[in-house]
Amino acid sequence: MFEFCTDPASLTGLRWFGCYLTTATHFSFYWSFGTVILLLLVTAPCALAFGFLGASAARSHVAPVSLLGRGYIAAVRGVPDIVFFLFFIIALDQGIEWFKHLMVCEDLSQPVWNNGEFRVCAAAKVPAGDAAPWVVKAYAFGLAVFTFAIVFGAFAANVLYGAMQAVPRAQLETAESYGMSHRQVFRRILVPQMWIYALPGLSNLWLILIKATPLLFLLGIKDAVYWARELGSAKTSGNNPFPHGDWRLFYFLALLVFYLLATRISEIGLTRLTRRLSRGQATRAGEEMRKGAAA
């Protein structure tokens, strides 16, 4: 990074740290925080979409659709945390390969699961054996996002379902008396009003989502936890220009600070959002704001 870094052995004090903290591997570490934030930003809308679909399905008047929605919510909520992550990542991976196996492979005589092995033909490998490294990375990341979205979607569905029930019945009846159809009531009355009821639950979920991101490590992605372990472990002078003892403690302290900051900033942001969404609502907070503006 800096020109005086060419001979690390001669450095001391601040200069040593300046060079140490700007090595290529350290930049991978800093980028991995970006990965975490990217995951959050991609997963949150996906989970919300899953949740919206789930809640709408659970509210449906068609029995099988309603059953599907309720089943989805209940199944994911009933089973403990990381079991789902560990299960889904393998199940999805194998499911996709198995499906592709059925589509593209010529020889289907061999069973896919056999003697403790999972084997598909070479053409059915996902990602393909000769794929570029970034494709492999993107695929792993996509699987992780999908897993997070499914799990958190069920929780969001539960919150949104409750919020839809919480919109005052009179509002919907008024809309119906104006001659709106079911779909119109849903789109113009129910959905715009439900967010304020959903917000406490959703903000809780967002905070939980932030705290769930270290599980990326379990899904085999080189995230901040991976790099913290990698960089922090003791380095000898033989293979490393910057030898040091076991510093994992400090790396994990940095991670801890990152998560505490993320939590704190989100809390502040969510408080603002609550105020913004309360405007013009038929709730106590909305009423107080209306009176405050009039006074």
């Binding site: 769930a212 403690l249 302290l253 505490l260």
Partner: peptide, 18 residues
């Protein structure tokens, strides 16, 4: 409450090893 339990475990282990 503000940090992941996962990180807390790591941190505690590394601290206790020291």
């Amino acid at each position: 409450r503000g940090s992941p339990l996962f990180i807390q475990f790591f941190l505690a282990y590394e601290a206790l090893v020291l």
